[in-house]
Nucleic acid binder design. Structure first.
Lengths: 261, 261
DNA sequence: CGCATCCTTGATTTCATTCAAGGATTGTGG
DNA sequence: CCACAATCCTTGAATGAAATCAAGGATGCG
């Protein structure tokens, strides 16, 4: 069932057949969600890791005066929180952007699965670090790029991530978010997002209609955005001689600490 | 020797005496650094975890055209990369901002220490998650706050972090960074940072002279920045047995699907 | 003392927001 | 299947925030 999750992590974690099966069984209790439904509310202490099976959601922070910042998009295969959440009250909220389905992995189960299987341990480690890398890139994106570049950069990221879970054609994928959402993602007003989109369209860099994003010339958009895909870590871990912990070490490591989940 | 590291992590990890001693021995090969010296260069595969002992450094990303974004400050007790860097080529650089000293922990050693001691494992886990939380907050800071608020927010964070390692007096700490650095941190030009600082000074919210930052009325600055310190996770993990949903959450739970909590 | 870095100030231009309104799409119920 | 409402997208004009340009002043360092 967690098809996209496995698909995303497999190239990096090199799952065994058992690993895949274990993951299948781990992910349970699928439920549907609909747009604007809160999947996780800030301040809540989690006992499960929620996985997006279908549809999109976003992590966001909101100020008292209503201003909102989207800090991450969650697409199929993404988890809503860290698999081992230590200070286990989350400090952001998660809200559905479309209809979709999510399921959950019990906190205890995930720990014991990581104990038993190095492949699964690697997978979740890897996913955590990849998520952090994206977050760093988003910080940089909001801080140093122009409006045009920010949006172009976001689109480059999205299509690559969608491809990684098999949800993008060669040059297009769904983009089920409003221009208001886009604005709250890259720190621009809705009106300005609209104008930038039209510029990008006029320049032939994208088409975006009925929630279908197409990037006819990826290299061109990438150049505009100064997009460097290294942060998406799709190549899998670099196993260079002496640093990467051996599988048995990882297992012991995780077993060693009963982490508040 | 890693005095600040222990001091920072102790309240969250509850070290044993052995843990403290083990950490002492783990951190080795102290060397001095000086301003603008690169401690880590993007793309390099790390075999050690570098720890800041004294002085400040920053993590940054740079575009081809020279624009630079500081994505994190490293103060004494901070590590320059994740303790288990799986896709182990870092995608950011680290540069010293002041003179100072750093040391390193061997990758293998850190793993085996985490294996042997739950306290040490907890500590590094905790530190990783806390770092991620800061990164999320920075993304939001750059995206949704005004210039004034951004700088105020940064100052609130810095003084709290400095306090956590015993490097802040009641209401002041050193801030050894130029206005240009500040600009590259919050996404503003140097000139504009200068003007905002003067506004904050004129409003009596800060003094900043000779690299000494003073916040006479923290609550006031916090209010201006809409600063919520929950993301700094200084309280330690939340060991709540069961999370009881608040009334307004109950309503949502009953109405829709029981999600995640 | 003199150089280099950093800070400060004013004037101007650019970029982005806000305000306001009209048009297009989508979804819903009759 | 159509009418209607709600949401979303689009456009223009006016305002505001921040960047840029250009210099002068302060501070610290050798």
């Amino acid at each position: 069932m967690p098809h996209h999750l496995i698909r995303k992590l497999d190239p990096c974690a090199s799952f065994s057949t058992d690993d895949r099966q274990m993951l299948q069984q781990l992910v349970r209790d699928a439920v549907c969600f609909s747009p604007n439904q809160d999947l996780i509310e800030e301040g809540v202490a989690l006992r499960h890791v929620r996985v997006i099976l279908e549809g999109w959601a976003c992590c966001y922070k909101q100020l008292d005066d209503g201003r909102r910042q989207i800090i991450a998009y969650l697409i199929p295969g993404d988890v809503c929180s860290t698999p081992l959440n230590f200070p286990n009250a989350v400090n952001y909220s998660v809200r559905a952007l479309t209809i979709g389905r999510s399921a959950q992995i019990n906190g205890r189960d995930i720990v014991s699965a990581m104990e038993r299987s190095p492949g699964i341990a690697r997978a979740f480690w890897f996913d955590m670090l990849a998520t952090s890398a994206i977050q760093r890139e988003w910080t940089a994106n909001a801080g140093l790029r122009t409006a045009r570049e920010r949006i172009a950069h976001l689109f480059c990221e999205i299509i690559i991530r969608m491809r990684a879970v098999g949800l993008a054609d060669d040059d297009s994928c769904t983009l089920p978010i409003t221009q208001e959402d886009l604005g709250e993602t890259v720190g621009l007003s809705t009106v300005h997002v609209n104008r930038i989109l039209q510029e990008l369209r006029a320049a032939g860099l994208i088409t975006l209609k009925r929630q279908l994003l197409t990037i006819p010339d990826f290299a061109a958009l990438q150049r505009l955005a100064q997009f460097n895909d290294n942060y998406l870590c799709r190549a899998g871990p670099v196993y260079r001689a002496n640093h990467a912990p051996a599988p048995h070490q990882l297992a012991a490591l995780i077993a060693g600490n009963a982490l508040g989940v």
